[in-house]
Amino acid sequence: MITLVLLGFKLERLMSGWRFGVAYVTSGIFGNVFGANFAPPTTPSLGCGAAVLGLMGCFFIDLALRWRIAKQPFKHLIKLIVFTTLGFCILGILPGVDSFSNTGGLFAGFLIGISMVPARQESRSRKGVLLLWAIRVISLAILVVSFISLLNNFYGDKSLDEFCTYCRYISCLPISGFCDQSK
């Protein structure tokens, strides 16, 4: 919750309120659908972890876009890497926490950040503006196609755990039989 409040307050000031809401909800839904596809069948896929990591993905894109004008960009990059690593390594190995959802949320956050984070351009050349919009449209298209593919796979006949038997160890630390509960 602390991470959500700290990140959310800063990101909402960078983006508008509606863009922040779209980024939060979309990365949360995408992450949980991603987790539902790759996690073992008995692992719950819910919570705000995917949405919070989606916000971190937006922050990575914001930092990349504002690298030249940011004060101490390496310091901000290190903080983002530390928080992201903590989100995956500390929380991701606990039983009942779906690391796949977090991964999907971070992926969606990157794509949403590319699509929605306002870019401050030093030069307003027509070519630069067109390139930026082309990248944004491609990013949004990748997000939509990925989401449709994940939903199609989730409701389809094939199960991803048939060819990914080790996937349960990605989302669980194999101590005291925690990972064996999801067989």
Rank of each mutant, 00 (worst) to 15 (best):
M56R: 03
C58E: 02
H76T: 08
G49T: 09
F74G: 06
D62K: 10
F20T: 04
A51Q: 11
G105V: 03
R13E: 06
G28A: 03
L53R: 04
I93P: 13
L77S: 02
G49R: 08
L77Y: 10
C48H: 15
I69A: 08
V82E: 07
L14W: 14
P40Y: 10
I81S: 15
I61F: 06
T43V: 09
I90Q: 11
Q72P: 00
K79C: 12
M56E: 13
F34Q: 01
L86C: 12
I81L: 15
L55S: 09
S99T: 14
L77D: 01
I61E: 12
T26P: 00
S27V: 03
T43K: 15
Y24M: 05
F59V: 05
S45G: 09
G105A: 05
V25H: 01
R19H: 07
I90H: 02
L65K: 12
R66W: 13
T84F: 10
I69N: 00
L94N: 07
L53N: 13
F30H: 08
D62L: 06
C58L: 09
F74W: 11
F30R: 11
S27D: 03
G47T: 04
M15I: 11
L55F: 04
F88K: 10
I78F: 15
G35P: 04
L91E: 13
L46K: 11
R13W: 12
C58W: 12
I81R: 12
R68S: 06
G54N: 09
M15P: 00
M15N: 08
G54W: 02
V33C: 07
F100R: 04
L63K: 07
G57S: 08
A23W: 09
N32Y: 03
D62M: 11
I61K: 10
R13C: 05
P73N: 04
H76G: 01
D98Q: 00
R13M: 08
F59A: 06
S16R: 13
C89K: 13
P40L: 11
G87K: 05
A39E: 09
I93N: 14
I69K: 04
P44F: 03
A64P: 00
N32H: 11
V52D: 00
K79S: 15
P73K: 05
L14I: 15
G54F: 05
T84N: 10
G92H: 09
F20L: 05
T43F: 14
S16D: 14
I90W: 13
M56T: 02
W18I: 02
I29S: 14
P95I: 04
G92P: 01
P40R: 03
T42L: 15
Q72W: 11
L46A: 10
V22T: 08
T26D: 03
F100D: 07
G105F: 04
G96R: 06
R68Y: 03
T84H: 06
G87I: 04
R19D: 08
T103L: 15
I78A: 15
W67C: 02
F34I: 00
F59C: 15
